[in-house]
């Protein structure tokens, strides 16, 4: 049986958006998407797609389906995984799927969509989304689907129904084995995801994503209980004003900095 891999991917505000363009509406409790910077596929999710495609490189009959949920999508952005080499793109699109820091609804909807996709051997997710930095949808999804789980992978290989995962530890790494089906989260240490090739982009242009509503995956939004409510949103207070040390030239400024740190008893 060929492997079936589902990769979850979220459309997010580009995390490289300059601080000056990052805006919130503290009354509406919303982060305002910057007009000048297009959204991106969450970086860790791209790395999860890369992990799936590496497995597919080794076993070409593997099916890689990318799954995303949201209220609206920038289609050219969300088609990037197809251009990278994924087989299918499934979008659960529903006005009710507002982007919130409560992962409860996302977990239910993603789980229902994965069930609808049928027998899945491996679910790969980015370690966290760069908007709410929650790092919990994958773990909640594993609980909901009853899948064994491990996190922060820098390498994922599958052989004879067993996933072999190299995980990043704060001061080293470890290798974990899990019998499939399983869910694994992927970190940036996996390396830069592949760029779409021209052929990939052409092929993606011909593929239409499958679009489902929340009802299509058999859920009724009103039956989903939230776990958290956003009650405040603010910009952080900026720190103390910086004292710039100047000199006749760069070297002189370096010497004066040393004297300054000594004077301030910092060294």
């Amino acid at each position: 049986m060929p492997l079936r891999i589902v990769v979850t991917a979220k459309q997010v505000i580009d995390p490289e958006t300059p601080a000056s363009a990052f805006r919130i509406d503290p009354q509406a409790l919303q982060v305002l998407p910057p007009a000048s910077v297009p959204p991106v596929v969450n970086g860790f999710d791209e790395q999860a797609i890369e992990a799936a495609l590496q497995i597919k490189d080794a076993a070409p009959d593997t099916n890689v389906t990318v799954l995303s949920i949201g209220a609206s999508f920038a289609m050219d952005v969300m088609k990037k995984p197809l251009a990278m080499g994924a087989d299918e793109l499934v979008l659960v699109q529903d006005d009710a799927l507002v982007n919130s820091p409560d992962p409860s609804v996302a977990v239910h909807v993603l789980a229902a969509a994965i069930r609808k996709l049928g027998d899945v051997d491996l679910v790969l997710c980015g370690r966290q989304a760069s908007d709410w930095d929650n790092a919990q949808v994958p773990l909640g999804l594993a609980e909901k689907l009853g899948l064994a789980v491990t996190t922060i992978a820098k390498r994922v290989a599958v052989e004879n129904g067993i996933a072999r995962i190299e995980r990043v530890l704060p001061d080293g790494s470890e290798t974990v084995e899990i019998t499939l089906p399983a869910l694994v989260t992927v970190s940036n240490e996996l390396g830069q995801a592949r760029y779409p090739t021209l052929r990939g982009i052409m092929a993606a242009g011909r593929k239409a994503p499958t679009i489902w509503s929340v009802a299509d995956v058999g859920l009724d939004m009103s039956s989903l209980t939230p776990g958290l409510e956003l009650v405040g949103l603010a910009l952080p207070e900026s720190g103390a004003a910086c004292e710039f040390i100047e000199g006749e030239d760069d070297a002189d400024a370096g010497r004066k900095l040393a004297l300054k740190l000594r004077e301030a008893k910092l060294v």
Binding site: C242, F244, I245, D250, D252, G254, L257, A258
Partner: peptide
Amino acid sequence: EARFGVVGDWQKVLPAFIDQL
């Protein structure tokens, strides 16, 4: 967020900073 800063090329700032320290 810095308390002290030097605007300059580290290749020039750092050696002098280290020597002075």
